[in-house]
């Protein structure tokens, strides 16, 4: 299966997931966004030398992903995509900082290695928290909540527009790529000139499409801003469970960051 097909499948799966009932959202989408932000702020404030503290932070993505139905294994796998970049920046630390940190089984471990591991752990965890948030709540709902929180409508409208037309243009591109593959006699690469013509063609089609959309919007009374959803928050709080969920996690995160960690006698 080609890259474009995979992308279309992934987008469709995400859309299905977002429409399905949200088991993790005991709290509202807004509370989940708050939890994610607090989580990231606390996670990133942990000093690089306290790697044992960082590991405790894995609890949130593990539990939240399991409740969201994505399974932590998948989230972990997906988050590994950022590993090359993080490792690229972090790999110089062991070379540059050779101050000894501690001994492990007779081997001296330097502070550089500890900070390298820290960078990788916090890089992966921060990506996982965001992946779980959008996989569970859905992008459209996140945008709606952003608007409710005061983000200007021009930005949320823009975000929703890009999101909606991503799959449309991917389908357009898929048709073009398939036509090229059918006539390419086995040639797979896109030399610059050919790529330019193809991307340019896609660009022209996009502009034409935008003009058609604009005319359709005007015909339906578009006045510069997108209409606001009036339906009640799909993930609205029900009873005391959402409050308990949010408060419990906030307390747990505060402990992970500032509390005395449990020590292990190994």
């Amino acid at each position: 299966m080609g890259k474009i097909d995979k992308a279309l499948d992934a987008l469709a799966a995400m859309e299905r997931g977002a429409v399905a009932e949200c088991p993790r959202c005991m709290a509202s989408t807004r509370a989940d966004m708050l939890l994610t932000l607090v989580y990231l702020a606390l996670l990133l404030s942990v000093p690089l030398q306290e790697v044992q503290r960082l590991v405790w932070f894995a609890a949130y993505p593990i539990v939240a992903a399991s409740l969201a139905g994505c399974g932590y294994g998948r989230v972990l796998r997906q988050s590994l995509y950022v590993l090359p970049l993080i490792a690229f920046v972090g790999i110089f630390n062991p070379l540059a900082d050779r101050t000894p940190a501690f001994m492990a089984w007779g081997v001296e471990v330097s502070r550089g290695w500890v900070s390298f591991v820290s960078i990788i752990v916090r890089g992966l965890l921060s990506v996982q928290a965001v992946l779980v948030l959008t996989a569970c709540c859905g992008f459209a709902d996140v945008c709606r909540q952003l608007r409710a929180l005061g983000v200007p409508p021009f930005l949320t409208t823009q975000l929703l527009m890009v999101y909606r037309y991503m799959s449309v243009l991917l389908e357009e591109l898929q048709t073009m790529a398939r036509a090229r593959a059918a006539r390419g006699y086995g040639r797979r690469s896109y030399p610059l000139k050919l790529w330019g013509a193809m991307a340019g063609q896609l660009f022209l089609r996009s502009v034409d499409r935008a003009e058609r959309i604009h005319r359709a919007m005007l015909a339906r009374g578009f006045d510069g801003t997108m209409p606001r959803y009036t339906a009640a928050d799909r993930h609205g709080p029900h009873g005391w469970e959402p409050v308990a969920w949010t408060v419990a996690w906030l307390a747990a995160m505060a402990w992970m960051r500032f509390g005395r960690l449990i020590t292990f006698n190994l």
Partner: peptide
């Protein structure tokens, strides 16, 4: 007002264009 759909669709175009790599 045409900038609303135009910027949106062209944002999506960037995504789509990123799906096809060109050889350097």
């Amino acid at each position: 007002s045409d900038l609303v759909p135009l910027t949106g669709v062209l944002g999506a175009f960037v995504f789509a264009a990123q799906m096809v790599n060109f050889s350097i």
